[in-house]
Every structure is written in C-alpha cells, then in structure tokens.
Amino acid sequence: MPRQERPLDPDGDALSQFARGLRKLRANAGSPTYRELARRAHYAAGTLSDAAGGRKLPTLAVTLAYVRACDGDAAEWETVWHALAAELAAENTEPGEREPADDVPYVGLGAFQIEDADRFFGRERVLDELDGKLARHRFLAVFGPSGLDPPVGFVGDLGGVC
C-alpha cells in the first residue's frame, strides 16, 4: 500500500497552492500511484512526489511531465509555473539588490557566437603564433587549462608537441 502524502502547509502560500493544484490534478486523473505516474511521465516517482510536496518549486520539465501524465493542460500549467517562479524570485531578491547584468563576460556552456567577438581581446600574440603554426601544419590542437598564456602546448599534424 502506498504511503500517504505529507500534508501541505496550511498557510496557503503560493508554493503550497501550486502543490495543491498538482495533487488535485492527480486526483482528477484517478489518483494513480506515483509509481504509475512515473511510468507515464518518465521521471522517478520520488521526483514527481516532491513536485507535489510544496517544499520547493519543481523544474518546469518535471511540472509539465507531471501534468501531461495526469492529462492536464500543459500550456496552462506552464503559465502558472512561470508566474510562480517570478513571484518566488521577487521574494528572494534583497531590497536594492541589482539585477544580473545581461552583458556578462562568461556565457556559460553555450557556444560563443560572432556577436561575442568583443569578449576576446589581449590574445593577439598567441593568436598570431597559432596562425603561423596552422599555416605550417594541417592539424593543430591547442590544450591546457583556461587562462594560461601561452597555452601548454600545440600539437601539429605529426603528433609532436611544438
């Protein structure tokens, strides 16, 4: 027999209301067990149970998988999720705390694009050296920890370190 869900906080905060809505959606779908819901949603039962736990906002992907597994309206729940995420972010912002700048020097794991060219400067000597080696070799690999000037080594087409 599956264990009972933990009661939601009676204070009725927005996160509890969100969780209450997910639980209602599950009840309207016939109250499938979280194991059955996991099979439908392709997420772990514990992840889906946590989503309706009311302690933290689940990711959008988990929320939408939960909703779809219960035959709910994914577009409606996506709107609700974004509104709640914005509300929670506003609550967690200190007064006077500035918004993160859009012009940060590190773009994360995303690939740098041509419009990021202004972020690359101060490496002209290294780039000239690489360009010269590339003119003499068909293959050139550059390796070493980020930020070293010059990089640890250059590998030419004969496999030797230059």
Results as ranks from 00 to 15, higher is better:
Ala38Tyr: 02
Gly46His: 02
Ala14Lys: 08
Leu22Met: 08
Pro150Cys: 10
Leu127Thr: 09
Tyr43Pro: 00
Arg136Pro: 01
Arg6Leu: 09
Asp103Trp: 10
Ala19Leu: 07
Gly156Asp: 15
Glu78Thr: 13
Arg20Ala: 14
His42Ala: 01
Phe143Glu: 14
Gly53Ile: 08
Lys56Ala: 15
Pro10Lys: 14
Ala52Asn: 04
Asp118Ser: 09
Ala45Asn: 06
Ser31Lys: 14
Arg20Trp: 10
Ala74Cys: 04
Arg23Thr: 05
Arg40Gly: 03
Ala44Lys: 00
Gln17Cys: 02
Ser16Asn: 14
Phe143Met: 09
Ile114His: 08
Gly12Lys: 11
Arg55Lys: 15
Gly12Ala: 09
Gly108His: 03
Phe121Val: 06
Val155Pro: 02
Ala90Arg: 15
Glu115Arg: 10
Gln4Leu: 13
Pro2Leu: 00
Phe18Ile: 06
Pro2Gln: 04
Glu124Thr: 11
Val104Thr: 11
Val155Asp: 08
Glu115Asn: 08
Leu158Tyr: 06
Thr93Asp: 03
Pro150Arg: 15
Gly46Asp: 01
Ser49Gly: 11
Leu134Gln: 11
Val152Asp: 05
Glu36Leu: 11
Asp102Phe: 04
Pro7Asp: 10
Pro151Cys: 01
Gly72Tyr: 08
Glu87Lys: 15
Val67Leu: 02
Leu148Trp: 07
Arg125Tyr: 03
Glu115Gln: 09
Cys162Val: 14
Asp118Arg: 12
Glu124Tyr: 03
Ala75Asp: 11
Asp50Val: 01
Ala83Lys: 15
Arg68Thr: 13
Gly12Met: 03
His82Cys: 02
Ser16Leu: 00
Pro7Ile: 02
Asp102His: 09
Arg55Trp: 03
Ile114Gly: 00
Arg23Val: 09
Arg119Gly: 08
Arg6Thr: 14
